[in-house]
């Protein structure tokens, strides 16, 4: 219970830090980094809830969801980078 709460709260803090960074930056690459940190915060909270102490095995359902989430996050980042690159090629 203590560990779940500690890691869960840290995940929420990371989420809020990322969101704040995404709102404050006006450089798109830095904003993208902040958004990814924000997403990682959600993953941490989710996995913290799945943790059930040292004796019980962890809940596999959130693990499976976060695993797909990590892969989706990296492809979304690749997509955002490609869109950003295209956008800048019009600026030049």
């Amino acid at each position: 219970m203590l560990q779940e709460l500690l890691y869960g709260l840290a995940g929420l803090a990371v989420f809020v830090i990322g969101l704040r960074g995404a709102l404050l930056h006006d450089n798109w690459l830095l904003r993208l980094l902040s958004l990814n940190v924000c997403g990682a915060g959600v993953f941490i909270t989710f996995v913290a809830i799945a943790y059930r102490g040292l004796t019980l095995p962890a809940d596999p359902v959130p693990h499976a969801l976060v695993l797909t989430g990590i892969v989706v996050a990296v492809s979304a980042m690749a997509m955002a980078l490609a869109l950003g690159r295209r956008l800048r090629s019009y600026d030049d």
């Binding site: 890691y7 993953f43 941490i44 996995v47 943790y51 962890a58 693990h63 976060v66 695993l67 892969v71």
Partner: peptide
């Protein structure tokens, strides 16, 4: 994050 996943008993996530 990979270290944290390992700590929270999620080795699949740590690998990924």
């Amino acid at each position: 994050l990979a270290v944290i996943w390992a700590r929270l008993k999620a080795p699949d996530l740590a690998l990924a």
